[in-house]
Amino acid sequence: MRGNSVILEVKDISKHFGGLTAVNRLSFEVQEGTVFGIIGPNGSGKTTSLNCINGLFRPDEGRIFFRGREIQGLPPHQVAKIGIGRTFQVPKIFKRISVMENLLAPVLSSPRTDQELKAKAREHLHSVGMLEMEDRLGEELSGGQQKLLELVRILMFDPQILLLDEPFAGVHPTLKTLFYKKIHELRKQGKTFILVSHDLTSVYALCQQIIVLDQGEKIAQGRPEEIKRNERVIEAYLGR
């Protein structure tokens, strides 16, 4: 694992949709090798923030740095190539192609041979207990299996940061445990995570640093124990 250097820096980014401000002057830094949580009520700008980081949205204002390199405005495929992987709230599995082809999708421009890439894909499938499913179509997997496939799929291109959007939503407890295990294992290998979730128990258990968004603005930042006690956070969630 690398030292605690800043791997991602978000500086004053804003994103508007017509008259709606989805994200307003948001800033935060993510330390390398940590799990960084983003929580907040529905519509608070969590997913929009991820979309700005991975290039699906171009922020209207502000800058984003990955290892010191300015990345806002880069197209998503270039953001992926520099080492930022992303999963979605509703898994974006390619349903009418096989599990193996799903896994090969992120490495199509790799100089490695097809056989090497397939061997790597099988290792990843084995790590989540899905090895026998490589020939199945994406649509033949259960919801939980689709989430797992999406996670191991981004691992194929060996990203340095993984942006996970609601990875625990609608997932069976057994599968959730597998997710925890995988995140711990990857963190030990030096991977950094940005975790967006409504599952506060998981966020508190996994994250070292958390920010809380409400109506596009950051209302709190700190360690899990600090966030749990924060009055503004409690108010935002419970509406008191």
Binding site: G55, P76, H77, A80, R96, G138, R153
Partner: peptide
């Protein structure tokens, strides 16, 4: 085929 299924997801995967 990835583009056919979901161009946004395909882009995000590089």
């Amino acid at each position: 085929r990835c583009i056919r299924e979901d161009p946004e997801a395909a882009q995000v995967l590089g």
